[in-house]
Design a protein around this nucleic acid. Structure first.
Length: 489
RNA sequence: GCAGGUGUAGUGUAGUCUGGUCUAGCACGAGAGCCUUCCAAGCUUUCAACCCGGGUUCGAAUCCCGGCACCUGCACCA
């Protein structure tokens, strides 16, 4: 399926669509509908229980999406997001002023204003390297979305460009509140904002996006998660600078020199995608970034990539970044407070390992990879991911059957997200549930309500993928569902 | 932001070049009813669209202008 097909599917089935679409919408801003919002929530809770809640040292926090200017100056975002763009009047090519000038061997101080860039261009009589055309006036382009605060709108703030900053800003308080133990993991699931120039391809490049991030603060010299269970796990990795995709075992990565804690989390992430979400092995890989592609503060930087047909191949859906002590040291400088910690007779800035996931991209990826419209239309989500856990159908229009169906629905609907439908043929109702990935359809038939039948008090439960049915006692339904919906980890 | 393309019911489309027969067709879909003892069946019936604004014309889905949005490429993507 291409991106258009997925958007059509998503609109039709209540997954997501352009925000404010009745006014024509706006690129890079999406709303989730009744199925999409639940799918997203399921992904978030699964992520939370898998990566965060299973570890006694990791905790969920929440942070404001609106931040004052200062922390974002300290983090480097204000400066680095403030590129100056300069465009050729003739061929309309745009350049980043700092890159253009340094290529031409002209020095200009960092943070130069557009007027200074224009003056430099004028005094050096610079022209477009492509067509020798004249440059128009340069202008600042800020990837962050700024807001003005206060009655005079005099205080500048920004919508946070990544959730990570909220974790760094709150490290000090949480570290003390949690009695100064390392490692300490702070997880945030929330929204972030970037003024992307050209948001496209559905949920790939968004101006408002949802991130699920876990920032783990640790002592670089003293963190060795037990990797023995994972040593033999084999996964696809493109290492830098080799640039070739290979199958590598976790223990081999250790020998290649990647830190143990890094490899441990690679294996954890790999299992999350393949075992827990059901992504086929060959559609998952790590892609190591180096050189200019790597953020300067990262010591090791791997993108988590999935092979997504509608996006034309392997695309980034998350990242595993060893950020060193960049974050706490820069906020120490920025705030004039020390975030060094004392441990083992040493005083140091905790290092940070960041697990970062784009929630929207992961939702799209699951639809892309797990939806099939060849023959039957089925979304093969893991049962615990599906927007509805179960649907309850009366086989036919019949008073006793419908009454029993309603009673079953009210019995399970508070515990499992459930759906009920009385209309149309049974096959059509099954098909509708297949399309949005409902793993189980519970059908009340004549035997259910016939006390002379051997099957009295039982219903048929149809599995989405096999279409097979088995009879389950109504009184066992709750246990059946809770077993079947248990996440696989 | 630049260039090109596109914009018709919930979805996918026909019609646009060559203005009228378009009271906008089709398929899927959705609703109501009938039928039906398990996989999008059938029958009856209903619902629903020309992106927005202006202009030309006796007459505009169709031509022109402006806007908005989307798609593709370029540039951008700490």
């Amino acid at each position: 399926m291409n991106a258009e097909d997925i958007l059509g599917y998503a609109r039709r089935t209540g997954m997501f669509w352009s925000a404010a679409e009745i006014y024509g919408g706006s690129a890079g801003i999406y709303d989730y509908g009744h199925t999409g919002a639940t799918l997203k929530r399921n992904f978030e809770s699964l992520w939370l229980s898998y990566f965060v809640e299973r570890n006694q040292n990791y905790f969920l926090i929440d942070g404001s999406t609106l931040l004052p200017e200062k922390p974002l100056i300290a983090s480097g975002h204000a400066e680095r997001f403030n590129d100056i763009l300069i465009g050729c009047k003739k061929c309309k090519s745009y350049y980043r002023a700092d890159m253009l000038l340094s290529e031409l061997g002209i020095e200009i101080h960092e943070g130069a204003a557009p007027s200074e860039v224009d003056e430099t261009v004028r005094s050096n009589s610079l022209r477009c390297p492509k067509c020798n055309g004249e440059f128009g006036p340069s202008r600042a382009f800020n990837m962050m979305i700024d807001v003005s605060l206060g009655p005079e709108k005099s205080d500048r703030g920004y919508l946070r460009p990544e959730t990570a900053q909220s974790a760094f800003l709150n490290f000090y308080r949480e570290f003390n509140s949690l009695r100064q133990k390392l490692p300490l993991g702070l997880a945030i699931i929330g929204r972030a904002y970037r003024n992307e120039i050209s948001p496209r391809q559905g949920l790939y490049r968004l101006r408002e996006l949802i991130q699920a991030e876990l920032q783990i603060f640790f002592d670089e010299k003293n963190w060795e998660p037990d990797i023995s269970d994972y040593a033999g796990d084999e996964m696809s990795v493109v290492t830098y600078p080799k640039g070739q995709q290979e199958r590598v075992k976790a223990k081999d990565l250790l020998e290649l020199g990647y830190p143990g804690f890094y490899v441990y989390h690679m294996a954890l992430i790999h299992r999350f995608y393949v075992d827990v979400l059901g992504i086929p092995e060959e559609k998952f890989r790590f892609y190591e970034k180096g050189g200019d592609d790597k953020a300067f503060y990262n010591k090791v930087h791997m993108d988590i990539e999935l092979d997504i047909q509608s996006w034309g191949g392997f695309k980034e859906v998350g990242g595993l970044h060893y950020r060193g002590d960049y974050d706490l040291s820069s906020h120490s400088r920025g705030s004039s407070k020390s975030f060094k910690v004392k441990s083992g007779g040493r005083e140091f800035y905790p290092n940070v390992l960041e697990l970062s996931f784009g929630v929207d991209r992961n939702i799209w990826a699951q639809i892309d990879i797990l939806y099939s419209n060849e023959g039957r239309q089925v979304l093969s989500l893991k049962p615990y991911m599906a927007p509805y856990a179960a649907a309850v159908f009366p086989l036919q229009h019949d008073e006793a059957i419908e009454k029993e169906a309603e009673s079953i629905f009210s019995g399970i609907s508070g515990k499992f997200r459930s759906f009920m439908d009385f209309s149309g043929s049974i096959g059509k109702r099954y098909a509708r549930m297949d399309e949005i990935g409902t793993p189980f359809c519970i059908t009340v038939d004549y035997e259910t309500v016939d006390n002379s039948s051997d099957n009295y008090g039982t219903v048929t439960v149809r599995s989405r993928d096999s279409r097979e049915q088995k009879r389950v006692r109504v009184s066992d339904l709750e246990r059946f569902l809770s077993d079947a919906l248990k996440p696989e980890f």
